[in-house]
């Protein structure tokens, strides 16, 4: 089976540039990240708000430091968490787990690729029917991107 992906520029903030990818389409088509936003705007608005606000603050002020991301094999994920704890955000004055996962790939403190994601319903991503595909795709794309840079076929200019 043959697929191709196009890298799509999303947004350049003061400290971080964000990209996404379009699978089997040109960059004028909807990227994985745009699809993620479209799908969760209504059903998971508060959790999506949390993630997008996070992205913007990292982009504007702190940069994409490693400790701000959760490690998902080769890829990374948002929101981050401790090693054995769920990430939390505030809902009705209570710490509530934000189980909405956005998979991404942190290339450096200044370049991040945003992919897709969904609500994680199992402890392991590989066991969750909703995020499993996104997790696997994110890791595949992350390896592809890393290889592209390692081979010198792509560079940050």
């Amino acid at each position: 089976m043959s697929n191709f992906v196009s890298i799509k520029f999303i947004k350049e903030y003061e400290r971080v540039v964000f990209y996404s990818v379009v699978v089997n389409g040109e960059e004028d088509k909807e990227s994985l990240f745009e699809l993620f936003i479209s799908l969760h705007t209504v059903s998971e608005s508060a959790k999506l708000n949390h993630i997008l606000a996070w992205i913007r603050v990292l982009g504007n002020k702190y940069g994409a430091k490693d400790r701000y991301f959760r490690h998902e094999m080769v890829a990374e994920g948002l929101p981050p968490n401790g090693i054995h704890r769920e990430p939390t955000y505030i809902e009705e004055d209570q710490n509530v787990s934000n189980n909405l996962r956005l998979y991404c790939h942190r290339l450096s403190d200044h370049v991040v690729f945003l992919f897709g994601g969904d609500v994680k319903t199992a402890t392991k991503a590989q066991d969750c029917p909703l995020v499993k595909h996104h997790f696997n795709l994110a890791n595949t794309l992350s390896r592809l991107i890393d290889k592209s840079f390692a081979d010198g076929r792509s560079r940050v200019g």
């Binding site: 089976m1 370049v111 595949t140 592809l144 592209s148």
Partner: peptide
């Protein structure tokens, strides 16, 4: 800051994915 690169093909797992 932007990313530039060339069109290329690579095999990953069961898929052939080009970027």
């Amino acid at each position: 800051m932007m990313i530039t690169g060339i069109f290329f093909m690579t095999k990953i797992l069961k898929y052939t994915i080009s970027m």
